[in-house]
Amino acid sequence: MTAPASPAPPPPAPAPYRGAVERHPRRPLLPFDTGTDPDAVELTGPVFGPADVGEWDADLTRQHPGEPLGERITVTGRILDRAGRPVRGQLVEIWQANAAGRYTHRQDRHPAPLDPNFTGVGRCRTDDRGRYAFTTVKPGAYPLPDESSWRPAHIHFSFFGTAFTQRLVTQMYFPGDPLLPYDQILAAVRDPADRHRLIAAFDHALSLPAGPLAYRWDVVLDGPSATWTEEGR
């Protein structure tokens, strides 16, 4: 009988992704107080209608004649502003790798197979409660081009709020993924509580017997908007 192994030490913190440094402004962003210009253009934003989104845009498993490979999942959630109000009728867009970890993008040279039945692009509009819903396959992990590390499974998301200032592009991760503590891009979000906000929750009750595995991920959009309440800021 051997002694139980001591718990594994925590992984070394990954170096946070810094991006392309020659693309980052040297100067600090210029603060613009929308309180001084309550009619600022950016306090409004584009509107999208039912005709902007196609019938199968929100089901990434139904965009080709055949069935894509991979584990069927749903990702649903609500979009709220910081006052907790639902963002209604707004556009949500996603893109992701296929189940093998390969994007349908000519610059993705990862030698994992493309799936002729999976493009990995989706769109939907939020409903009256601010809810969105996608059906897709769980994306695979893949190594970074410099082979320094593997990226955990993730889905890229793009959101619009009621105001252009609330624009958000981010990435959603899966709970329990062993790669999360090693990911440089997730580590670029420095606050652990903030990192946690990028990880979806598995919803066993929503996962129908033999249906897709259900993940829930709610999103809060930052930024001032024309309908912001006085006490909110």
Binding site: L80, H105, G120, V121, H156, S158, T170, V189, L198, V219
Partner: peptide, 28 residues
């Protein structure tokens, strides 16, 4: 999931992440 601030303050915002290199087949 959004955290509700005990003091009834604004919800914590979801952080942004890089758009990455592969948005070209999705967003345009």
């Amino acid at each position: 999931m959004p955290d509700t601030d005990d003091r009834g303050g604004p919800l914590a915002a979801t952080p942004a992440q890089t758009i990455g290199p592969f948005f070209g087949h999705a967003l345009p």
